[in-house]
Nucleic acid binder design. Structure first.
Length: 293
DNA sequence: ACGTTTTCCTGAGCGC
DNA sequence: TGCGCTCAGGAAAACG
């Protein structure tokens, strides 16, 4: 389950191993892996041939490689996606979905491997109305907290304006991108905030503190060289990262809170789970709807 | 227009 | 041994 730091590691790997190279051919082995390329697998393959990759870019968990001529190859790893550079002739992975070969085959081929096929590749033109070059399909994705241009004031204003709850807001890609279930729980634990706290109750310093914790937990992951929760994630060099040792909240049901020792809790939340410390992160007092007599 | 729910997909893990 | 069930996850479509 790659989160933003893992995706950043993949970006760096793509930049080093695919940037500047020219595509010899592309082979789609599973149509679902290119389902977001609406013109279809054959079109995807045809339009990649002969194109040269520019420097790899990222926003949130989306990756893209600009192509000479204007479009970009957009990638999302989903839950189980991997991008790997493999020597030509290496046995196909069981869940190999797309293979991209280059005009300099000695430097290896690019493979998209994805067991659960939530991820995928597609080609898109750049958005016309943005100051920075970004594929049109990503124009609605907010900047991520590691982006120097992330607008903290606008994020705080959005929290104040909205009537939603904290974790929902953290996972809302139009407000802030790149925060997944794991790091949302980690950052909320660090900030001692409950996941169902109404966003409008945060004052500015509290919002900034929460953003600081999000960045801290992501930087910590990056410092470990890109991390992951299980072996499904592999970076472009085929090395798997692991951040499990550093998790303070996610997956720690019934284990003692590392701050106060209280057993951590897990609660069902939006068809998944939220982990929190009931003492450090007390639930918000239910808003009184109508004063009962 | 907004917030919420459902959907997509596969394999690991579990109870029986 | 194997069946059927639950769970995991991001993001977009569908729903209210």
């Amino acid at each position: 389950m790659p989160e933003l730091p893992e995706v950043e590691v993949v970006r760096r790997g793509l930049e080093r191993w695919a940037g500047g190279r020219t595509v010899a051919g592309a082979q789609v082995l599973h149509p679902r892996a290119v389902r977001r390329h609406v013109a279809g697998a054959a079109d995807f393959e045809a339009r990649l041939r002969g194109r040269r990759f520019g420097p790899a870019r990222r926003r949130g968990k989306y990756l893209w490689l600009p192509l000479d001529g204007g479009d970009s190859l957009v990638a999302h790893l989903g839950m189980s996606g991997q991008l790997r550079i493999q020597p030509a002739g290496t046995a196909d992975e069981k869940h190999l979905r797309v293979r991209i070969t280059f005009e300099d085959p000695a430097a290896g081929e690019l493979r998209f491997v994805d067991q659960r096929t939530f991820g995928g590749l597609s080609l898109h033109p750049d958005a016309a109305d943005t100051d920075c070059a970004i594929p049109d399909v990503l124009a609605h994705i907010a900047r991520d907290p590691l982006d120097p241009a992330f607008d903290e004031a606008a994020f705080h204003a959005a929290l104040r304006r909205s009537r939603t709850t904290l974790k929902r807001a953290l996972l809302d890609q139009s407000l802030i991108s790149g925060v997944g279930n794991i790091y949302a729980d980690e950052a909320l634990w660090r900030a001692k905030l409950h996941y169902e706290r109404p966003t409008a109750t945060l004052n500015r310093p509290r919002t900034l503190e929460l953003l600081g914790h999000i960045r801290d937990v992501m930087h910590a992951a990056l410092a470990e060289g890109g991390t992951s929760f299980d072996s499904l994630y592999v970076n472009v060099n085929g090395e798997s990262g692991y951040f499990g040792r550093s998790l303070d909240a996610y997956g720690r049901e019934d284990e003692p809170c590392r701050r106060c020792g209280t057993p951590m809790r897990r609660r069902p939340w939006m068809n998944r789970s939220s982990y929190y410390c009931p003492r450090c992160q007390p639930p918000p007092r239910p808003r009184r709807q109508k004063p009962k007599k």
